[in-house]
């Protein structure tokens, strides 16, 4: 096997493990292979959920999705050129939040996000639906590896590890989702076909 092929095999394994772990905790995963598929998948998810307003992280963290293509059907609000108050109001109102994950954790099906000017916290928190884009190459084995991705001397103000939708069992152990955070978590897992397909 070429280096390329074995890297791809490893990332396929990681993607599968991530997917299984996330499904087990009630998350949804769409495996896509191309940018076009990712785009179509996003569109379908938003349509199906009747989302009219979408809050999103900065476009540069969401490549290769083309947000502008969505602008005809939806109101789009990103973090640029907006104040804290307006950002909060949009997030509180929006039907969905779209984020680009820094990493995924294979063992637990966890999305790793970090707070920054381009990637505010509320986007993945206030709307009832959280859609995240994750590149399979960014999947690491466990949480120790995920935390190592950040420079220990300059950590972001928040590292947010998300494993499935918001849930509670506080009333009679009846598992209910979406009590405070999003009731649905949809991950678009982009696993590109390798150029030299074996």
């Amino acid at each position: 096997m070429s280096t390329n092929a074995s890297a791809r095999a490893a990332s396929t394994l990681a993607a599968n493990s991530f997917r299984e772990a996330l499904l087990a905790v009630g998350g949804e995963v769409h495996l896509v292979h191309t940018a076009a598929e990712a785009q179509a998948c996003l569109q379908a998810v938003l349509e199906e959920a009747h989302v009219r307003e979408l809050v999103h992280h900065a476009a540069e963290t969401l490549a290769p999705l083309q947000l502008s293509a969505l602008a005809q059907q939806l109101q789009l609000t990103g973090p640029h050129g907006i104040g804290p108050q307006a950002h909060r109001e949009h997030c509180a109102r929006a039907g969905a939040g779209l984020t680009g994950a820094i990493a995924g954790i294979a063992a637990t099906g966890t999305l790793v996000l970090a707070a920054a000017a381009t990637t505010p916290r509320s986007t993945s928190l206030l709307p009832p639906l959280h859609v995240a884009l994750l590149h399979s190459a960014r999947i690491v084995p466990d949480i120790a590896a995920a935390l190592l991705l950040f420079p220990a001397q300059a950590l972001p103000s928040q590292i947010i590890n998300i494993t499935g939708p918001s849930r509670t069992g506080d009333i009679e152990h009846d598992l209910t989702t979406g009590v405070h955070g999003p009731a649905r978590l949809v991950v678009i897992l982009l696993h590109p076909e390798s150029e030299h397909h074996p």
């Binding site: 905790v25 954790i105 637990t108 966890t110 949480i143 935390l147 950590l155 972001p156 103000s157 928040q158 590292i159 947010i160 590890n161 998300i162 494993t163 499935g164 939708p165 918001s166 849930r167 955070g181």
Partner: peptide
């Protein structure tokens, strides 16, 4: 892992 694990710095 819990649904959310936040590391605040």
């Amino acid at each position: 892992l819990t649904s959310y694990c936040t590391v605040i710095t």
